[in-house]
Amino acid sequence: MIIVENLSIRLGELEIVRGLSFTLAPGEVLGLVGESGSGKSMTALAVLGLLPPGMRASGSIRFEGQDLLRLSERELRAVRGRRIGMVFQEPMTALNPVMTIGAQIAEGVIRHGLADAAGASKRALRLIARVGLPDPAARLHAYPHELSGGQRQRALIALAIACRPALLVADEPTSALDVTVQAELLALLREIRDETGMAMLFITHDLAVVSRLADRTLVLYGGRAMETGATRALLAAPRHPYTHGLLAAIPRGNAHANPLRPMPGQVPELDRLPPGCPFFGRCPKGDALCRDVPPPPVPGASIAWCHRPEAAP
C-alpha cells in the first residue's frame, strides 16, 4: 500500500537520508529504528510532505496509486490527516494549549468533510473513549494541561486516527513516557491496528519497543539502511554489526548473563561520513573496503547492507 523507493532527503549539500526503500502492506507494522540523527524522523515527515523549509526529498513515495512526492500542496492536504495520520513524539507540546481536546480531535474530521461540528464532536467523544481516557465526556472539554503525559499521548492517538486513515505514522510516540505507560500505549496501538487494519510506520530508537509491535524492522544509520527483515528473525540473529551493537545495548533478563554493553563512539556528523559504509569508524569489523565502497544489500535471513555480515547461525 505504500512503496518507498530510493528516497533521499537533502538539506543543501547535506544528504540526511540516502537511497532509502521500503514497503508496507495493509495492517502491517514496520519499525523504523535508529539513533537521533539517523534520518528516521525526517523520513516520517517526508511521507506527509511536511519537511522543514530548505529540505528536499527525491525518489518516490507511492501511496494509494499516487506519488506523494509529486503531489501539489493542495492534494497533499487531502491526504494528510485523512489517509495518513501522524502521532508526534512530544505529548507535552504537540497539542495546542489553548484549544480543548475535543476541538482538536474534531478539527481534522470537519476539515476533511466527514461530519459537521456536532457529528465531529460525537466522533471525538467516541474516540476519546476508544483510546481509554477516563471520563470521556469531561475530557472532551478539557485542555491539554489538565491531562497527564500518557493521557495526552492517548489524545494525540485519537486525533491521528480520527479520520480512519489507512496509514499511521508514529514518531517515537512512547519515548517521552515511563515504561508502564509505554507498554499500555503499545497495547492500545496494537489493538487499534487489529480492529481497523491500518498500516503503521513506527519510528523509534528503542529495539525493545520494536520487538513488541513491529512485524518488520528497518534499521537506519547515518541516513542509510543498515538491515531490514522480519522483526523476530532480525532480533534473534542480527547480521549487521550495528544492529548487533544496538541489541547489546538493551538491558534485559539476567544482567550477569547478558552484561549491558554501550556501543563505543558517537554518531558522527553527517558531513564527516566516509564514502563507504556510514558505520565505518564505530564498527569493530571495519576495514578499507568498508571505508571506501558503499556496501551492497546482502540477502539472508534478513537483508544487511554490509561487506562483512554475520553468517546465519
Binding site: 500542496e73 495520520g85 504537540a94 478539527e107 476539515r111
Partner: peptide
C-alpha cells in the same frame, strides 16, 4: 515553531489555517 503547528498541519490544515487557528491565539 511549536510542535502543535506540525500536529495541525498533519491533520490537513494549510499553513494559513494553522497560523490563524492555532498560532495566532497563542
Amino acid at each position: 515553531g511549536e510542535d502543535y503547528i506540525l500536529t495541525a498541519r498533519a491533520k490537513g490544515l494549510s499553513r494559513a489555517e494553522a497560523l490563524v487557528r492555532h498560532a495566532l491565539r497563542n
